[in-house]
Design a protein around this nucleic acid. Structure first.
Lengths: 237, 237
DNA sequence: ACCTGAACACCGTTCAAGT
DNA sequence: ACCTGAACACCGTTCAAGT
């Protein structure tokens, strides 16, 4: 209970006649998370997806939290894979942009990851490899010591934060679109109130209603990233 | 189920002989979340904290999610309060820094808020007021239209991201410190592996072990924020 | 070694029935 | 109008017992 140790500190067990693999289990876990979201995930659901009784999972995985850690690291692996085949890149700015872009795409594919990252620290092998890749680029660029950590952290923060905002925007927009009149009727009063109290904010909200979300989110992401990279560049020793 | 509407679209009910208030309920909710974390929060726990049966809560609040929305907006209000009494500030950079710093402090007081923000969009009155305050500063500084949104988003992202990273660091450090030998024994093999595969990363981890976390996290936060503000400033029309 | 089935101690939410 | 008590349909996790 109090000592919540990580999956990565325990090896996988020896085996003889297993029907299941951790890989399989993690696979259907990710499938459920992607398709139905975090709330829909339960051990019982995973088990039934594998045609097995709930208790069986505990032979492969000590806890639901551990399973989540495994799922999280698996999707971080996707970012690394995307980096593998890609051609070399001239400068550190575009090298970092590529990692950031790949991470953003992954977060958009697996929205549940973000809440997970906010909940528990993440020390899986893919997470470490990804961090190391970022450090390499920044170290080659000339950053060292604490500035190295701070620079990488700043970029990671922006990526995660931008996707959180994007998802929030999307879900609100979906809600407005889906049940149309029904929604605006209920929300009408509240929107009126916003207009009175915060005309500036209301104007921005109204403006963003007429915009292509995909495009604007991508633009915002690049905008913030460029600001950050500019600031970093001017701090190079 | 599918249509998850927000608390803010429904008013509070009329009343006659209530024993409870939303305020009280939200109060003990925040208390539990602060003291024992998100997992420990249950309707039954809140009810018993108020000396009332679980079902009674549903007279005041339609759902646990709604209660969380209320709690979230309540703590966002703390940031606004912190802004009220403060003296005027010369430039837009320090005005924004003050909001960012206040938000960071709030996130550190209530770590559960971060996972919540990542999960559901947040349209409470305090959230809106806070956003408007940020917009005002940036608009006065000279930003407009989409750049205005993007600039505010970039700053918010940094604040949230930085605190997530800080919490992660803290929890790992606490784990290492608490059960000392027990932990390092288990983690030893894994750390060895990291050293082999990612020497650069291992070096950074080792270095950060000797550092004062509070101080370094504050430094990192300011570093990223300064980068961002520099980048923004150079993009002023 | 691996899996089933049943159980334990919890959940959120509903709803009759009381006051 | 407000609250209780009991119930429903779920959880995660454990563990004897089977193979």
């Amino acid at each position: 209970m109090s000592t919540r140790e990580s999956v990565w500190l325990r090896g996988e067990r020896p085996h003889r006649d297993r029907r299941l693999t951790r890989e399989q289990i993690v696979g259907v876990t990710i499938g459920i998370l992607d398709a139905e979201g975090r709330e829909a995930l339960s051990m019982r659901r995973v088990a039934s997806g594998l045609g097995v009784s709930p208790g069986a999972l505990y032979w492969y995985v000590t806890t639901k939290d551990h399973l989540m850690e495994l799922a999280l690291d698996a999707v971080l692996g996707e970012v690394l894979e995307g980096l593998q085949g890609a051609p070399g890149v001239p400068d550190w700015r575009s090298a970092l942009s590529r990692i950031a872009g790949g991470s953003r795409a992954m977060f958009l594919r697996h929205p549940w990851v973000l809440a997970d990252l906010a909940t528990q620290p993440n020390l899986g092998p893919n997470a470490l490899a990804l961090a190391d890749a970022g450090l390499e680029i920044l170290a080659d660029a000339g950053f060292a010591d604490e500035d190295l950590d701070a620079a990488l952290a700043a970029i990671n923060d922006h990526v995660a934060g931008a996707v959180v905002a994007e998802n929030a925007w999307r879900s609100v927009a979906a809600r407005m679109g889906a049940d149309g009149d029904d929604w605006t009727e209920q929300a009408g009063d509240y929107l009126k109130e916003i207009e009175e109290r915060h005309p500036r904010l209301a104007a921005r909200m109204a403006a963003s209603g007429k915009i292509d979300i995909d495009q604007e989110c991508a633009r915002r992401f690049e905008f913030g990233l460029a600001c950050l990279l500019d600031g970093l560049e001017s701090r190079l020793p």
